Amino acid sequence: MKAGDLRDLARGDVQLSALGMGCSQLGGLYRAMQQQQARALMDEAWSLGLRYFDTAPFYGYTLSERRVGAALSARPRNQFVLSTKAGRLLLPDPTVQPGDDGWAEPLPFRPHYDYSFDGIMRSFEDSQQRLGFAQIDVLYVHDIGRMTHGDANVELWKQLTEGGGFRALDALRSEGQVKAIGLGVNEWQVVHDAMQETQIDVTLLAGRYTLLEQECLSPFLDDCVRHGNAIVVGGVFNSGVLAGNGKFNYGDAPAAVVSRVHRLAEVCREYEVPLPAAALQFPLAHPAIVSCVVGARSVEQLRQNVAWFEQALPAGLWQALKSNGLIADAAPVPEGVQ
Rank of each mutant, 00 (worst) to 15 (best):
P283G: 09
L284D: 08
L284P: 02
L284I: 06
L284F: 03
L284C: 04
A285W: 04
A285P: 11
H286Q: 06
H286T: 04
P287E: 10
A288G: 09
I289H: 06
I289L: 06
V290T: 12
V290K: 11
C292P: 10
C292S: 15
C292V: 15
C292H: 12
V293P: 14
V293N: 08
V294F: 09
V294T: 13
V294H: 06
G295A: 13
A296G: 13
R297K: 14
S298G: 09
E300H: 07
Q301P: 03
Q301Y: 09
L302H: 09
L302T: 02
L302M: 04
R303G: 04
R303L: 02
V306L: 04
V306K: 08
V306A: 04
A307P: 08
A307W: 07
A307T: 14
W308C: 10
W308S: 02
F309M: 06
E310Q: 10
E310N: 05
Q311H: 12
A312I: 08
A312P: 14
L313D: 05
P314L: 09
A315R: 08
A315L: 00
A315W: 00
A315K: 01
G316S: 02
G316V: 02
Q319W: 03
Q319N: 12
A320V: 03
A320K: 05
A320C: 00
L321C: 11
K322I: 01
S323E: 14
S323C: 10
S323A: 14
I327V: 15
I327G: 02
A328G: 08
A328C: 10
D329R: 10
A331Q: 10
A331F: 06
A331D: 09
